[in-house]
Design a protein around this nucleic acid. Structure first.
Lengths: 226, 226
DNA sequence: CTGTATCCGTGTTGATACTG
DNA sequence: CAGTATCAACACGGATACAG
């Protein structure tokens, strides 16, 4: 019927003026939103993305990146020598997908079928902190928590009932947590006691332990549906 | 060929503890979110959904409805006689998908590729009113606008910088607009002057025309990206 | 080592036709 | 009206081979 497939551009679209439908045209394909999730804390290389997305295949990842670049959601950039590697970075508009990720994550957290024991990426954990943080629970608290997740270092600042989460190599922190993302998740969302995780050698704590006790209460999960 | 479809167990899932990924497991399949969109203003029948979703085929719609029912997002209900028809209705949890639809719609409205000239459903238009309404622009305004979209009647209440949109057969309104959804969209978002639409016989206005002039300014679109 | 391209088996999607 | 059956086209994911 149509010969418009010339350059593999036959993206299947909803023919619908609704902005939601158009949004799905842009980021509704399998993996697309998860690729964007992995870019929320800054540019990443192809292989970083592949490693963080269990199950994606190289060709699908390449397709998604090309598609998202074409629609202006991200762009590819070549790092200056000597680190002449290519990275993918969200555009300003691309970063604004965060409210969608938060709303979807918050909604899905109520699902009876949610299995928190599956693997979790660093970015997912950090994003979940932004999503689930409760300003009410943090009333009167002002603190800085360093997170050492594998090789990467992030910092989490809490003040005035708000939270910031960002990459940060600095060392000035009231509390330092060192563990795999899944362990931090078990600590905060799974109610695992820090002592048990430390004894098992899965978690390393430095600094203010009273702050740790408070910190793990700042991210309440919504009640399950059904 | 395979007998595994009877219990729908072959759903392709992201093996990822991230709530966003789980959300995509639930509503990330093609058409799923648009089916939910069409149910946002109350139960609908199979054929209503099919008519409102241009391009969906009967088997895919049936599959989506079955899948969404299985995950607890909607349930099917048989209307009491004599109207013994079957309808699909979101669960309480299902209705809570609205923030996701709003965030995605708001984000996609900034897309340079958004084509507002495509067909638009009644529900899409109503949802867009909730999404794009600006309390600032409505400061000091209190009014009731009746919308007659084809055979269906909805009412839009504005007070205290907030908007409500719901089905309503009532007639008490300061302003009555009667037109196809695409025409209302052209009026509000496309900047089409009401007079031209009336002269073309596409729009019928009753009531407070000064209110109409104000009403169409209450839903500012975000600036385009790129 | 990083990123891309090409094959191929399989499952999903979508149009038409058909049944209760 | 409310779906099912059938089938063709496509998308996905794995493996492998290729290019800078």
């Amino acid at each position: 019927m149509d010969a418009s497939r010339s350059e593999g551009t036959s993206r299947r679209r909803y023919e619908d003026a609704c902005a939601v439908a158009h949004g799905l045209d842009l980021v509704g394909e399998r993996w697309a939103l998860l690729v964007m999730r992995e870019l929320m804390f800054g540019p990443r290389r192809f292989s970083d993305l592949r490693a963080a997305l269990p199950g994606i295949s190289a060709n699908v990842l390449a397709q998604r990146l090309a598609g998202l670049e074409e629609t202006g959601v991200l762009h590819r950039r070549r790092l200056p020598p000597p680190a002449s590697a290519q990275v993918y970075e969200l555009t300003e508009w691309g970063y604004e997908i965060e409210p969608v990720l938060r709303a979807l994550g918050r909604w899905a957290a109520r699902s009876p079928g949610h299995d928190p024991s599956l693997p979790i990426s660093t970015v997912s954990l950090l994003l979940s902190l932004r999503t689930m943080f409760s300003g009410d629970h943090a009333a009167g608290l002002s603190a800085r928590i360093a997170l050492r997740l594998g090789a990467e270092r992030y910092a989490c600042g809490i003040a005035g009932g708000r939270i910031t989460v960002a990459a940060d190599p600095g060392d000035a922190a009231d509390l330092v947590l060192e563990a795999a993302p899944a362990i931090i998740a078990a600590l905060i969302y799974g109610g695992q006691p820090a002592e048990a995780l430390e004894e098992a050698g899965l978690l390393n704590v430095e600094g203010d332990r009273a702050l740790l006790a408070r910190f793990v209460t700042l991210f309440p999960l919504p009640p399950k549906a059904g």
